[in-house]
Every structure is written in C-alpha cells, then in structure tokens.
Amino acid sequence: MAEGIDDKTRDYHLRAGDYSDWFRHQIRDKDLALETTVVEKDETLSSQESRKVVLDAVPRRYTAPATAPDAQR
C-alpha cells in the first residue's frame, strides 16, 4: 500500500513522524518504530532512499523465509 503513495504525501508523513508513531502505537513494534525514527530524522536521505529503507524493514521483520532451515540431527 505504501508504494502507491506519492512522494510529497509520503515525505510529509515521514517528516511528521507518522510512520514510527504508527509502528509504535498501532503495530506495537518498538524496534521497527526506532528503526523508522532514524530514517524520519535523516534529512540526507532522498525520498526514494528513505522509502526503500522503510519498505525493506517491514518484510525483513514480518516475512518468513521461503524455506525452513534444515533440522539438526
């Protein structure tokens, strides 16, 4: 869903701290919120860079690996 938001709108909410606030209070993921806060405050990141960092963080935390690791025998 976030991929469909235009840069101007996304940047507004990013700089306002809305993403980390949402992760902290709605998703209740303190670590994801802290990771996102760093991006929100980093004004050296371009719109595309900050979008990528945040969009990469979510599946890294919430997507299971495609294959299960081999069981120890």
Rank of each mutant, 00 (worst) to 15 (best):
W22T: 12
T63W: 07
L45A: 02
T36H: 00
D18F: 06
R73G: 11
A68R: 15
L34K: 09
R51N: 02
D21Y: 00
A64V: 08
K52V: 01
L55K: 13
R24C: 00
I5F: 03
Q72T: 13
L14T: 15
A64M: 09
V39K: 01
T67I: 08
Y19F: 11
R24D: 04
A33T: 06
D18G: 15
Q72G: 05
F23L: 10
P59V: 01
D31G: 08
D56K: 13
I27A: 12
R61Y: 00
K52F: 04
D31T: 08
P69W: 03
R60S: 02
E49Y: 09
I27G: 04
S46L: 07
A71K: 15
D29N: 15
M1C: 03
L14K: 15
T63K: 10
D56Y: 04
L55C: 12
L32T: 14
E3Q: 14
E43W: 07
Y12M: 13
A68S: 15
A66V: 07
M1D: 10
A2T: 09
T67F: 09
L34T: 06
S46E: 08
R24L: 04
W22G: 02
H25P: 00
A57R: 05
A33W: 02
D21M: 00
K52H: 07
I27T: 14
A57T: 08
K30E: 10
P69R: 12
Q48N: 12
D6T: 13
Y62W: 13
E40R: 11
R28L: 04
Y12H: 13
R51K: 14
L32A: 02
L45M: 06
G4I: 01
V38F: 02
R60H: 01
S47C: 03
K41R: 15
L14Q: 09
E40Q: 12
D31V: 10
D18L: 06
R10V: 06
V38S: 02
D21G: 03
F23P: 03
Q72R: 13
Q72S: 11
A66R: 14
T37G: 01
S47E: 08
P59S: 09
D11E: 12
R51G: 10
